[in-house]
Simulated scan of single mutants.
Amino acid sequence: MELADRYNTALVCHRWNYLACHPRLWLRVDQSVKDLFETGVFPDLKTAVSVARPGDTILIAAGGSHPVSNIQIKKQLCLVGGGELPDETTLICSRGSDSALEFLSTCKLANLTVKAELGCCLLHRSGRLTIDGCVLQCETNPLDFLSCPIVSTAITSTPMKSNGDSVTVLHTRIEGGAKAVLTSGDLVLQRVRVIYARTYLYFWFDVDHQ
């Protein structure tokens, strides 16, 4: 299957959701698993990413918090939270780390909460990054100017290529930090849309070449 097709298939109906989410089809991150020799199950995200093959989907178990720090992702992967809501699957990046996740390839995040105490939640270096139905949180502190949910440093010499660098944000809550997006390459914020819910703002936007 192409990147994230399995996740999209799970949204069709209950039967397709059961088939698409069958444990044998996913790599899983589950801290509660006692048998670490169970095929396709890993105690932490860093180990799962290192073992995954390009095009794999990693299902991260709901409940509790998963520590992450400067995890580099250099292959096409889809990271999906295992709960019904993104708040049920939380990745926490501790103070002193540059980022929770660093992307150097085309990837997708879905149904996840990513928290950063100081630094950025997601660091985009290259590739096409899609953030769908997530929550990105930077902790409130006196150094808010150093906190940013999304940072992109991508620079592309051929911006018209269809497979160039970009960040796409869909139905995502962004909380804390001085700015939602900080770019230091040649990508710019475009096509911003915001929907006001009762308690949150939901964002849709692209970070792409003008």
Rank of each mutant, 00 (worst) to 15 (best):
C93M: 05
S94Q: 15
S94C: 10
R95Q: 14
S97V: 10
A100F: 10
L101I: 06
F103G: 11
L104H: 00
S105Y: 05
T106W: 04
C107Y: 01
C107Q: 07
C107P: 09
K108D: 09
K108Y: 04
L109H: 05
L109D: 10
T113A: 10
V114C: 13
E117K: 05
G119C: 12
L122I: 08
L123S: 02
L123G: 13
H124Y: 01
R125F: 01
R125L: 12
S126T: 13
G127E: 01
G127P: 01
R128K: 11
R128D: 00
L129M: 10
L129A: 05
T130Q: 11
I131L: 01
D132A: 01
G133D: 10
G133I: 11
G133L: 13
C134K: 02
C134D: 00
V135Y: 06
L136Q: 11
Q137R: 08
E139S: 13
N141L: 09
P142Q: 10
P142D: 00
L143D: 11
L143Y: 03
F145H: 07
L146W: 07
S147T: 06
C148F: 09
C148N: 00
P149V: 13
I150R: 01
S152F: 10
S157D: 14
K161S: 13
K161Y: 14
N163L: 14
G164E: 07
S166W: 02
L170R: 08
H171L: 15
I174S: 00
I174Y: 07
I174G: 12
E175K: 12
E175W: 15
G177P: 00
G177E: 13
A178N: 15
A178W: 14
K179Y: 12
S184L: 12
S184Q: 00
D186M: 12
D186V: 00
L187R: 00
L189V: 05
R191T: 03
R191N: 01
R191Y: 04
